[in-house]
């Protein structure tokens, strides 16, 4: 299986996280290479009233351009996108983002499932999805869609997660390809092309 993945090209990397995931990202982002050949989207649960400073905070941890998504924004390689608070983040076939203010899913907006499922339709086998720490079921359906479309599914090692529920739930519901601590995760992402 691993051999296969080495030949995999990654066109889009999704990272979903909830409670306890920011700490992981603060450690992970500085470890990523500066010229990523694919875009990354971060779908994080946060308070709806959250200010926009999170994207600035994340931007300060990486040399890759980092920004909160605006509607119909074209998706460009090397950029790290953050799903805005209180909107679902969707991917269109023309490789632009759409936002959606519909009902919460898994008590969450943005919902990780929504973005992962939508990206799976567009990127299929060239998609990589990673789930981080969280206390919620969100992400497991999405990661299943990623797998089903031929993409790669990975989770943070629940033993290293502040809130193990989310990665653990995924592990018990689908054949996850990789289980990582932060250092391994960075190495894996840097090896993707």
């Amino acid at each position: 299986m691993e051999e296969d993945h080495l030949n995999h090209t990654c066109a889009f990397l999704l990272i979903g996280g909830s409670a306890g995931s920011l700490e992981v990202l603060f450690k992970l982002l500085p470890l990523l290479r500066a010229d990523l050949p694919f875009p990354i989207a971060l779908v994080l649960h946060r308070r709806s009233s959250a200010d926009s400073s999170l994207s600035e905070l994340l931007a300060s941890k990486t040399l890759n351009p980092t920004q909160e998504v605006e509607d119909k924004e074209p998706i460009t390689s090397g950029t790290i996108y953050l799903a805005p608070a209180d909107y679902h983040l969707l991917i269109e076939h023309d490789h632009t983002f759409s936002l959606d203010y519909s009902e919460k899913i898994n008590f969450s907006r943005p919902s990780i499932d929504v973005t992962f499922e939508s990206a799976a339709e567009v990127y299929g086998p060239r998609l990589v999805g990673i789930l981080l720490s969280g206390a919620n079921e969100d992400g497991t359906r999405g990661l299943t869609a990623v797998k089903r479309a031929g993409g790669i599914a990975a989770v943070q090692n629940p033993d290293t997660a502040q809130m193990p529920f989310m990665p653990h739930y995924a592990l018990t519901h689908l054949p996850v390809d990789y289980v990582f601590d932060t250092i391994q995760m960075a190495a894996f992402i840097n090896s993707l092309a």
């Binding site: 679902h88 969707l90 991917i91 519909s102």
Partner: peptide
């Protein structure tokens, strides 16, 4: 309409 959202609906 944005296809991704419409399809979900």
């Amino acid at each position: 309409y944005s296809r991704a959202s419409l399809k979900r609906r």
